[in-house]
Design a protein around this nucleic acid. Sequence first.
DNA 1: CAGCTTTTTTATAAAATCTTTATATCGTAG
DNA 2: CTACGATATAAAGATTTTATAAAAAAGCTG
Lengths: 228, 228
Amino acid sequence: MNRPLILVIDDDIQIRRLLEITLRASGYEVEMAATGREGISIAASIKPDLVLLDLGLPDKSGQEVLREIREWFANPILVLSVLTGEEEIVDALDNGANDYLTKPYRTGELLARVRSLLKRAQPVGNLPSITSGNLNIDLVAKVVKNNGEVLKLTATEYALLVLFARNEGRVLTHQYLLKEIWGPGFLNQSQYLRVYVAQLRKKIEKDPNRPEIIVTESRVGYRFTEGR
Amino acid sequence: MNRPLILVIDDDIQIRRLLEITLRASGYEVEMAATGREGISIAASIKPDLVLLDLGLPDKSGQEVLREIREWFANPILVLSVLTGEEEIVDALDNGANDYLTKPYRTGELLARVRSLLKRAQPVGNLPSITSGNLNIDLVAKVVKNNGEVLKLTATEYALLVLFARNEGRVLTHQYLLKEIWGPGFLNQSQYLRVYVAQLRKKIEKDPNRPEIIVTESRVGYRFTEGR
DNA sequence: CAGCTTTTTTATAAAATCTTTATATCGTAG
DNA sequence: CTACGATATAAAGATTTTATAAAAAAGCTG
């Protein structure tokens, strides 16, 4: 394989230069972008193996850039953030960042993270089916089976279940779920979620009163887990 | 790895000499600076593994030096202060110091702190996860494990634990913790902090009555440490 | 349009979490 | 030793969040 191609999106020319030197010295191809907008368009044209994104961008908020790139970009994204940005980092991870570093950071650590991210083989979310515990979701036929028995789900229930199953083990926030299923205009309609989660539980849980598959994370969201 | 390089910034020649001897005898490289300005420029050129900074400097206030160095310097900074400087210490920690010692201090303690700060040269966690002692925090899934066993934490407990873990070894002031977790309007609600620290201890400490992971720094804050 | 399904809204009980209070404990200064 | 300020902790009280059924509205389909 060729030398991996890394796209650096950072508005600070100093940092950009430093990163370029460091990364090239470690055997990577490097491309640069100074703004979020530029970054998005370059990423689209060169398809880098990894994106290094500084969250403190001037034109678009780094989070927005992240979300936008993530819509079609599957390779790892490593974000840089200032030390104080606790919240920011959590948001970034929610928005699809694979890893993060806080500035100031050590060069060795940066390189190690980059290596580790690149090594990780693309899982690629294009599976024809998802199986988790007793549940099997055929994404092509759009059929869900529980212990081999076909479940009757409405379109919304199905979309929600697929979203959960694709993110097994991790907490999905109310916001995220609402945005993905109903759209960004529904961020405060958490009641929808409660209703649909209850319906799903009624159909997939052994004992809907003591849910084990879709677990509540109070004040945060829900977590889908199967197989302990 | 080489012998760690320590930069001592102190205006008192007596103390400087003493520190130099002590540190060299323990196997460290040592550089000296007598003023804040000098300290900054030396630090910039030699990139020490640790900075030992006396807050009572003549030319610039120690706090200023601290802030300035912290803009680009990522390695640990240990500050020295006189016993009465309660306020001073809190400021220093908020300005990015990793740890502090009050004069007069015992040599053994100084060396222990130095060792502990240096040891924490990130071995690089793989994914966005933090591991510290028996604790493992998966920031993506938002799962905390203690000896492999999943802990049930509320959102606030989780946020607090993450904040601690991301600043391992470092004293976090009450103010800082309150501001980060509850917001700037809660700076005087230190009781919240006590309650939640107690709850966390109950969940992660072997013996909550003799906490080893979240340690109280009376009148200042708390320190999260694992591995001594 | 009539009948069926699905989504959205409403209502209410139950659960979980946060906040406050009360009391005990600890450590230090005098 | 005593008193005081700071800390620890349980537990009560208040508030928010969640679960669920069921009614109302909206969509579909033939």
